[in-house]
Simulated assay, not measured.
Amino acid sequence: MTMQAIVVEQLGGPEELRIAERPDPRPGPGEISVRVSAAGVNFMDTGARRLGPAVGQVPFVPGVEGAGRVSALGAGVTEFAVGDLVAWVYAYGSYAEQVVMPAASAVPVPDDVTDEIAASIMMQGITAHHFTTEAAPVKPGHTTLVHAAAGGLGQKLTQLIKCLFGNSGSWLRC
């Protein structure tokens, strides 16, 4: 069986994106196959399209984050069931109808979160959390400046900073 995927066959701009038939991926041990319902589009994806992917070479299927329903389980996978809604980041090849990834790369998505929201928050959420806790830990009393708070990452940074200051320094009450 085959699926459709967006493929970059030559590095360059968005005009290099092509729809192509690819074999359906099959999960190996410890992996899951997911039918993609929404894929995030990130700066990392545009960079890979222009400069080349972090892993592999052209041709490649771009995309590193998304959300969808588990369609098959590899041997030994017990934390998910077929039909579960999951989201992921750093599962290469997300611009496709199906993607295979290690089960440990997926997170369950609550029923009240849409596929689109789940797909769009993974990379930005991890980055915002890293910036506010590791790169430049935000502490009560600090003054913080978020450039371009209108974008996705800026919005997440602002939300996390407000959460920290609004809850006496406890992330767990947000």
Rank of each mutant, 00 (worst) to 15 (best):
M123G: 02
A54I: 06
G52I: 05
R35E: 13
I19T: 14
A136R: 08
L145R: 02
I121T: 12
D112V: 01
T144H: 00
M3F: 01
A48Y: 09
V86N: 10
M3G: 05
P62C: 07
P110C: 01
D45G: 10
A150L: 04
T2R: 03
D115N: 03
L51N: 12
G63M: 06
V36M: 15
V146H: 01
M123I: 09
G154M: 00
V99C: 10
N42T: 09
A81K: 13
R49S: 10
T127D: 04
G151E: 05
E134W: 00
L51I: 00
V113C: 05
A72P: 13
M101W: 01
A87M: 13
Q10D: 11
G63R: 06
I19V: 14
P140F: 02
D24F: 02
Q124V: 07
C163I: 00
G52P: 11
G83P: 12
R173Q: 14
G28H: 11
V113L: 13
E79C: 05
Q4N: 14
P102T: 01
G169T: 08
E97L: 03
L164P: 08
V55F: 11
E15T: 08
K162E: 15
V109S: 03
T2S: 15
L157F: 00
P102V: 00
F43T: 06
Y90M: 15
P14E: 10
V7P: 12
E15R: 04
E21Q: 12
A87C: 15
F80Y: 15
P29Y: 02
E116M: 00
A5K: 04
P14S: 07
Q10P: 02
L153P: 07
M3D: 11
G30I: 07
A87N: 10
A87R: 14
H142F: 04
A119T: 05
G83S: 13
A106T: 06
L85R: 15
A75L: 12
A135D: 03
V58D: 12
L172I: 03
A20N: 06
I117F: 11
L51M: 12
D115K: 00
G169Y: 05
N42A: 03
L145T: 08
A39C: 09
A103P: 11
R18I: 00
V138E: 06
Q4K: 15
T2F: 01
L73C: 14
I117L: 14
V34F: 03
Q4H: 13
R26S: 13
G47C: 04
I126Y: 05
V41Y: 07
G12Q: 06
Q124R: 06
A135R: 13
Y92Q: 15
L85N: 08
H129S: 07
A54G: 14
A54F: 11
V77R: 12
G169C: 09
P110Y: 00
A39L: 03
P53R: 04
L153T: 13
I32W: 07
I121A: 09
A119C: 06
N167Y: 04
V109I: 06
A106P: 06
A106F: 03
C174T: 06
I32E: 10
G56L: 07
L172S: 15
A150P: 10
Q4M: 03
G66A: 08
V61F: 09
I126S: 09
S105M: 12
L17S: 09
